[in-house]
Design a protein around this nucleic acid. Sequence first.
DNA 1: GTATTTAGTGGACGTTGTACACATTATCAA
DNA 2: TTGATAATGTGTACAACGTCCACTAAATAC
Lengths: 235, 235
Amino acid sequence: MTASRPAKETHQVERRRRPRGAVRDGLVAAGLELARTGGPDAVVLREATRMVGVVPNAAYRHFADRDELLAAVCAAAMDELAARMAAGVARVPGRHGDPDAARGRLGAIGTAYLAFAREEPGLFATAFALPHQHAYGIPDTATGPDRTGPESTGPESTVQDRTPLGQLRTALDELADAGLLDRSRRDGIEYPVWATVHGLAVLAGSGPLRDVPEAARHHLDELIFGFIQDGLAGG
Amino acid sequence: MTASRPAKETHQVERRRRPRGAVRDGLVAAGLELARTGGPDAVVLREATRMVGVVPNAAYRHFADRDELLAAVCAAAMDELAARMAAGVARVPGRHGDPDAARGRLGAIGTAYLAFAREEPGLFATAFALPHQHAYGIPDTATGPDRTGPESTGPESTVQDRTPLGQLRTALDELADAGLLDRSRRDGIEYPVWATVHGLAVLAGSGPLRDVPEAARHHLDELIFGFIQDGLAGG
DNA sequence: GTATTTAGTGGACGTTGTACACATTATCAA
DNA sequence: TTGATAATGTGTACAACGTCCACTAAATAC
């Protein structure tokens, strides 16, 4: 403390030498790792700062509070799910409109969804965890169109959205283009399909159907896919 | 302190005057109220003891730790769901085997399920919240038949189980008895049906489809029920 | 009536989220 | 270049939580 700014080469704490936004990104990445092994509740602010190598309060320069960090982590987890789905779809060959390809891509979407839920239960739970904003308040009285409601598509859905629902919509549209899904049944059908796959993912992932043996798990998947096929074919 | 046991009527802290098991039951009831308004994370041990009027450590005479209390609260929440479903089914008139009654009872089950998820989001989330045993461990390697696997029914499913899955099974059996569900399609069909309803309950309750307006919500319900009907009818 | 179990109290510790004051570096105007 | 201002990290502190330990009074068993 004698000199005003002495020996800068020794080891002056190396304060603030990280590139811009590195701490923020690091916190999200750390939170993602915590979420991967422990779900949303495991993303604890202090632990994340510890992993990044900063003091706990440093996080508050980048996030208003823990919930805002968690929100970023949730978004990252959702992105990872979307990426896996897109990768699975991309692996299916065949031009648009080809019935086999259309079927294959829809199947790939469902498979990727279930695989993610099974292989990364923590991230899956985190992706769908609402950051405790006010969590479970009064049933809500006419909330405006704030959050992702029925996925407000643009004028004509020009740019494809990578969200799970967006990818599902694309696959179902192709199924209709290929003549495998009656146009009169297309409208809104994405919700029952999504609900069915998501329901199985939740029930078998962290719900009452967790720890059913691997064989039965596969059987459940087949049951679900068959059920969806029947639902798409219609009565 | 002069007499060995003086003035018992004054105000000697009124220690231990509660009936047997009252504290335990009170803790679960308190936890249930906390869960009702805040979900599983809101069931905090100290707050529950405060509501019951005992010191925090008193809880440890009845539960090994917070997770064990939470487990009891989860079971209570699941019971409430089951009770609502049973009540809904009981409201539908008609003898066993009557097609209208069979359809009505299956519908009542789904309706009660969705209504519970919508009216009591905290309890619904709690009912399906696994108490953080080790939560999201390694994907599990051949776990034995410990937890509620595929709902091990007795020899011939003599006594009806009130669990949601049990009630759904009963309704589907009746549907088959009434000739509305092909016997060849009955086996295992409860899982896709459950998954579909549960998926919608989760997505619309605390998931990305929360805060869709009331009207669209009803439309979603109809879509789901129609989809299930088609799935039951088969291709 | 005494001994033993049961069920509550009191105090303490470590961890968490977060607020306030402070210090240092980056950015930009003069 | 210099000096103001914003951005970003540090330190200290506090309340609340889950949980541990020692102690004590009531209920029960012998």
